[in-house]
Design a protein around this nucleic acid. Sequence first.
DNA 1: TCCCTCATTAACTGATCGGTACATATTTAT
DNA 2: ATAAATATGTACCGATCAGTTAATGAGGGA
Lengths: 183, 183
Amino acid sequence: MSQSKRAELIRKALMLFYRNGFHATGMDLVARETGVSKTSIYKHFRTKEELILAVLRLRDENFRNWLYRRMEELADTPKGQLLAMFDALGEWFREDNFKGCMFIKASAEFQEHDHAINAQAYAHKQLLVDHFEALARQAGLSDPHVSARQLLILKEGAIVIAAMSHTDTSAKEAKRIAEDLLA
Amino acid sequence: MSQSKRAELIRKALMLFYRNGFHATGMDLVARETGVSKTSIYKHFRTKEELILAVLRLRDENFRNWLYRRMEELADTPKGQLLAMFDALGEWFREDNFKGCMFIKASAEFQEHDHAINAQAYAHKQLLVDHFEALARQAGLSDPHVSARQLLILKEGAIVIAAMSHTDTSAKEAKRIAEDLLA
DNA sequence: TCCCTCATTAACTGATCGGTACATATTTAT
DNA sequence: ATAAATATGTACCGATCAGTTAATGAGGGA
């Protein structure tokens, strides 16, 4: 299987898992929708879990690239970028295929304490916190680490409410809190 | 089936679904663990979805009762109670069997736009917001509705992070934000 | 005692689960 | 050109999925 074929398999599997959930998406469906037979899939991923982990790696890359870039496009100061994150989230919430945070959902479906999928989901959040913390430090905030973790709480809360309510208002509400936090 | 038998069935099913997830928990396992045969279960619940909805009703009742009572025990002013919510959440996070918010997980597994389970999960959050809003109004806040929704965002964010990180620090971090909000 | 009713159950349905054995292309090396 | 190696698809594995069928059980009224 070529590198591009493999990448497309992961990309299509991502859409299926994101839309339908992990347990609810069978490997037969993955094979049918990707046009790659199950045997071939299992040649490159020993288990469904390994495929999910590969999907989460792609999602982490795509999502953080998109978010960081959008934050930079919307503002040119560190503090402005942290606030602009909530505008970017609002754009995401308004997308037709918005279905919440893939990592929250992965963690919810595989929450055994030491599960690799749970660990990888949390690793994604830690990378986000690291980015926020760097920006908070550049912005001259007194406690960049705490501020970063607080921004993460606001972000996750806004996403959860947006996914359940099918509205984007939580983005603005969270932004107002962040404005106080960073003032 | 007696009323108490039915209540115990729902109670045991709740634990199974909370621990293992909804799709991952089969009806055979529910029958085995509750000691009630599948046929009897399906006599009282036409589908698995109906059982899940009954479970969520029980969870809504239990969780809100517990949270509201704990908030009242920990503080005697409206504002104090809203802040005490985060102390109560911290207690919850430290429980051995803490596995995140059942409604977030239900919504994540059944997120089709108009799904009854999703709707019921969101209804639970709306009941929480209503309670927060009443307290915010009693506390004399200028915009009780927005404050209530912001507190919900903090609560959900703290829960998601606690579930993924297996720590309780998000409770304190969220509380510090709430203290600014309600100041 | 007999019959009726209703709750309960074991055993089963076809479909799907994650994963595999094996036979058949297709590619690569010589 | 040919043989070895790799990639792929079909057809299947036992287990489990949500849900049902047909038989059994106990309890109550006459």
